[in-house]
Design a protein around this nucleic acid. Sequence first.
DNA 1: AAGTGGTCTAGACCACAGA
DNA 2: CTGTGGTCTAGACCACTTG
Lengths: 235, 235
Amino acid sequence: MGEFQYERISRELRQDIVGGLYRPGDRIPSEDELARRYGVSRMTARSAVSELVHEGVVYRMQGKGAFVAQSKIIRDVNSLAGFFQDMRERGLDPGSKVLRVETRRASQRELEQLGLSGAAEESVREVERIRFVSGEAVGYQRLVVPLHRVPEIASLDFRRQSFYAHLKEVGLPLRHAWQRMEAVIDPQIAALLSSPSQVPFFFIERVSYAADDQPVELLSSYFRADRYSYEVRIG
Amino acid sequence: MGEFQYERISRELRQDIVGGLYRPGDRIPSEDELARRYGVSRMTARSAVSELVHEGVVYRMQGKGAFVAQSKIIRDVNSLAGFFQDMRERGLDPGSKVLRVETRRASQRELEQLGLSGAAEESVREVERIRFVSGEAVGYQRLVVPLHRVPEIASLDFRRQSFYAHLKEVGLPLRHAWQRMEAVIDPQIAALLSSPSQVPFFFIERVSYAADDQPVELLSSYFRADRYSYEVRIG
DNA sequence: AAGTGGTCTAGACCACAGA
DNA sequence: CTGTGGTCTAGACCACTTG
């Protein structure tokens, strides 16, 4: 046989999804139901569903079932817009939850990334946030800002205020940036976002600069790759 | 218990990998060995290894074992360089295998992507290739070129000649491009590249334009995300 | 309480690689 | 032939959600 049982089951489920029998948000048959229907053990039915989960076609919720995933949100890599502005421009409903705000010394690695290798004793403000769209956690971001660039940051309320909007108000808008994009699978981040542990994430590290070519922020982001795609213009 | 057995096993393996006990290319202990060592069933040991495989930290080869993955190759998104040039500039050993070359009518979707919606009856040249680095298949690309832009393409030998180098030679170098990046898991592409079926891929669709702002190519690429990361300059 | 996903067992047979 | 990963079984118990 050229096809294993779990492959047949996941193939037929996939066809039912692209064919529109199960639409985004719909529950697919339970593992027990699939096991009965195909005459296999539950572990085999589970393998079939796992394959779809790994592909991002389906996500699971314990105690509730397995559901067809939503389609993707497109982000413009070239844009220096912040998360809120970007989502609103797309007619979506952004949300944010601050996990942690702290002032501390920069690590050696952060100094290098920010191109501040020479500066010893540099203090930075660090902000950890979870990003939501329509109530669903879609991303995690860690923002590191050198205190000497934005001294008033210590008194900023990140629960109420957009950092990018603030930079514009104080005349320090971002002018250009450098970023590195990876695609990773990270169960810890997944757990933080209550998303399936095997969903791939875009991991993006960005260093942004103001008009004076000096760095203003180091932003590390994880966004669910089953929810986002990225557009780039070149040249 | 806050940690499952498979989580403990994969965590300890992960530590041994980042700690340098197992280095890229090394074989990690077999599933049977892990099962004995931790006193669990083989299925549980296998779950632990599977987690690392999903993370891209480890890859499996049937009959041989599970091995620590290599570190990533960085590509510059802003560069319009071709695959061969880009890899060579990084001191790597690129390779290519042509799967298929064909002249045919463009599909409706391709015409839209190329911005040629008005042009009926458009013929295109299609080239499918697998990309190698140091003998390992790392990517799959499908190139679609409108015949009217590069008429001589029908006689080009893609086994011997770089398309991008050819464009430069005939005075039609690429000037700018637009691309969309996704991260996907696709067992079919994985199979084509003989890579683990759950490895995430960057899926990149690019439309490139010459100096006259007319499209020259539509390039769809899949590159292994456990082998590549992407850099972008903005602004 | 019933249904669902999450983990786990102790075996089994198969396919593939290598000595 | 042995060791490895790949699949599969027929159960089990747990955690979580919903009625």
